[in-house]
Write a protein that binds this DNA or RNA. Sequence first.
DNA 1: GTCTATATACAGATAGAC
DNA 2: GTCTATCTGTATATAGAC
Lengths: 192, 192
Amino acid sequence: MDARTKILETATRLFATHGYDSTSLSHVAKAASVSKALIFWHFETKENLFQAVLSRTIEPYTIDVEDLDGLSEPEQLRRLIDLYYEFVTENVFSVRFFLSLFLREEKRPDPLFGRILDLYRLYQQILGDVIARGQACGTLSREVDPGLHAGLVLSALNGVLVQGFMGEPEPQPPQRLVEQLKTTLVDRLQVQ
Amino acid sequence: MDARTKILETATRLFATHGYDSTSLSHVAKAASVSKALIFWHFETKENLFQAVLSRTIEPYTIDVEDLDGLSEPEQLRRLIDLYYEFVTENVFSVRFFLSLFLREEKRPDPLFGRILDLYRLYQQILGDVIARGQACGTLSREVDPGLHAGLVLSALNGVLVQGFMGEPEPQPPQRLVEQLKTTLVDRLQVQ
DNA sequence: GTCTATATACAGATAGAC
DNA sequence: GTCTATCTGTATATAGAC
């Protein structure tokens, strides 16, 4: 592996676990087995390195909602919930990283920041649309407001995620919570 | 106000917004209008100051579940949910602070850390107990597992909280999400 | 208790050899 | 591209006057 990549990988790991300020370039250099000067040669400044790390990290963040066709609306909802949960479990490390950035004034990577929020809103809208369609088709109860219910589902998912961050062993394992979520927030909404 | 208190208040604010490492004692000294040396005279080290800040911050963290008597179980649940939400809104600042600490290896204030988790688990257990009692009395549906449902309710509450952190304006304001939460996760569980 | 002045360490960043 | 050596600022922490 070339030095540049090595630096990027190491910096990603260290920034994510210790944060921006707590991660010194001397530390990165040592962990990546290169000199400090080489980091500056490749990335100019610490800030630049950080931006490069963020871009690299956010790269796989996309929503592809395939193969929902042919499923009933409740089934689509269950599938979307699973997709969301799969995504965050596959990216726990960086999701945790970004969440910690959101909580601090420290570093708000505004452009990327906005991109994450856009993705998030898009996902919420997709959920809301499916609920609305289900109500129109008569497969889902009309008792709830689609947008609001979508917001609740996502909140619950995020809550499960955060609960996972707060340290094991939890009384309720995340997967069972997600199951409970689908049962209560989707199945109970179905029109029999 | 005496200097010691002034330092504590200032440090609390700065640590909470910028984190441990990003907050220099020079900065604290300037913001509190005292000399750096005075901070060391009162608190010995930066680490000590931080611990003092944490203790002070965690002080009001208690659960007092009063006046639930006389309420039906569903009403008790609604009340408990409101209490939780009131607590976090009154303490947004420090809750956000602690959550950010949980997400970083940076500083894990282990003793206090544990106390927060204990409170959290206690709250979850209270919720679970109320649900179980409701099921025994026949006011709540037996379809759900009490502990699991309690976990889901708390996750959803935490999710609403986090959603609030991620930046306004959100499509769904927190209060409406909490209402939706109570409707869906409590009312729909009632036996008519 | 509160200050100014200072010691010491390490941060981000540059110069220049190879 | 990669290094060693070095500059400059600022961090935590101390000494000692008042």
